[in-house]
Design a protein around this nucleic acid. Structure first.
Lengths: 271, 271
DNA sequence: GAGTGGTCTAGACCACTGT
DNA sequence: CAGTGGTCTAGACCACTCC
């Protein structure tokens, strides 16, 4: 601890432990020394040591488990979602025979995981459109909506890869009663295939991406530390008549998700 | 505090204050009661109250200022970056006469701010390609690279809108010595216009997006609380010959940035 | 100088995990 | 049961801001 280089003790401890983790001295999956041990090692109170550990958690480097210990986080299965390819790919599959659609879904496409490794849950409900939803769909607030909540998990890791809340106009999808039954999920071929059964073809999909800290509930479901970020994707699907037919919000853990877009540019004329 | 509804005291305090902020009882920009006041009001120790405030900071709701007080955060100027439009727009401008390129840049395009409201800093340096950069550009590690660091701020808010680190192959851009001089920034028309002067036309741009907590240094520069997330965009520009000509990393505050992509789908045949 | 948030201590009790 | 992390207290001193 030299002269004017002064940062708080807890921060120095946090940085020292961070460096050990990055160097690999503390191995991924391995346990940190217990809080009393660290307190003794650095000559600090347990409170200060806990402060340092809080930093490491906010940096996403360690995970604390009640009654067990504090562990260096593993690099988890990464998910690379190439949306530019994925949306067209889904569209191309929507009209294929069911047997073929059933073979692979979009999540397998993203993760490279096999279908039996994935677990899929859905729950449907009907709600009245909020003013915000009314604006997005250009409909009256109060219109009956079909709300669908999904989450997809990897069986080997048991924490969900994402949480999805999707909205459709209820009376539109009611044209095919099968679409109102959550028991039919996962629907082979996904949403675009479902829309196809009621004669809807998509023209384009608009993705809006932001990032924020997780809500306590989301941190719990996605099994991430409260200090780790989530990516929020707001996806709006527009059909060939220009109407908004689906709006969904997807929450993904920021530490394991990578979203990819390719923008193809038109050529300069006269080359 | 009812029966089995038990969450920790500090969390209950955090949630009560959160609700007051969301309801507007505590106005944006206004001060929270001081820590001793809150301790008295809730009948808790100052430590517990500080714990609650730490939560609010991690949620991005308040900002603490040493020696002054704790304030409810204002909603800041939001930045909506429509990359699908923006990249083509930049390409179309690249060949325009300088007079015309000079009128508006991409940041104004995103924010709706006027040029005099924006401040722009650039610093250039040369480095040797790391193995990672070598892979991205498909060149030998150690190749001389031009590294350009930018940051763009709004004068009215004084915190940068983003931090950019961009790489080009030095000997490629050296064909136009003007491109090696940071004094020429901001270059009217941006990077695509610069590349045009050395005969490079882009074919496509690949964006990869992730989110994570900010490094302490980034939190400092972007003026965000350590608990708020950043969006990280890795952008790879590929020319018409298929070569990678630029790679850049853009760090943006997650609480004020929204990135938009539109995926245009091709029509089903036979409709 | 008074008031603010930032750091730190030394202790306590709790819930949870392992054996 | 012992050991872990989670919560909480009652105090202390500091650096900083504002008057």
């Amino acid at each position: 601890m030299s002269q004017r280089d002064w940062r708080p003790h807890y921060m120095q401890v946090a940085e020292e432990l961070r460096d050990e983790i990055l160097r690999g001295t503390l191995a991924p999956g391995g346990a940190l020394p217990s809080e009393p041990e660290l307190a003794a090692r650095f000559g600090l109170s347990r409170t200060s040591v806990r402060n340092a550990i809080k930093q490491l958690r906010d940096w996403g480097l360690v995970r604390a488990e009640q009654g067990r210990g504090t562990y260096v986080r593993q690099q988890r299965q990464r998910v690379r979602r190439n949306h530019t390819e994925r949306y067209q790919w889904e569209k191309d599959r929507a009209r294929l025979p069911e047997q073929e659609r059933r073979t692979t879904g979009a999540t397998e496409h993203d993760t490279g995981l096999e279908l039996p490794d994935l677990e899929f849950r859905a729950s449907y409900s009907t709600t009245a459109a909020t003013p915000e939803l009314g604006r997005k769909f250009n409909i009256e607030p109060g219109t009956r909506m079909l709300q669908r909540d999904y989450w997809t998990s990897s069986r080997t890791e048991d924490s969900p890869l994402n949480i999805v809340r999707s909205y459709l106009v209820h009376d539109v999808v009611a044209a095919n009663p099968d679409l109102l039954d959550q028991g039919n999920e996962p629907w082979p071929g996904g949403t675009q295939s479902q829309l196809f059964t009621i004669g809807i073809e998509l023209d384009r999909i608009v993705d809006e991406i932001t990032a924020r800290p997780p809500l306590p509930e989301e941190a719990d479901i996605l099994k991430i530390e409260p200090g780790v970020s989530v990516l929020v994707l707001q996806k709006t699907s527009i059909d060939t008549s220009g109407a908004v037919v689906e709006y969904s919000e997807v929450v993904m853990p920021g530490d394991r998700t990578e979203i990819v877009y390719t923008t193809q540019l038109s050529r300069w004329a006269g080359k």
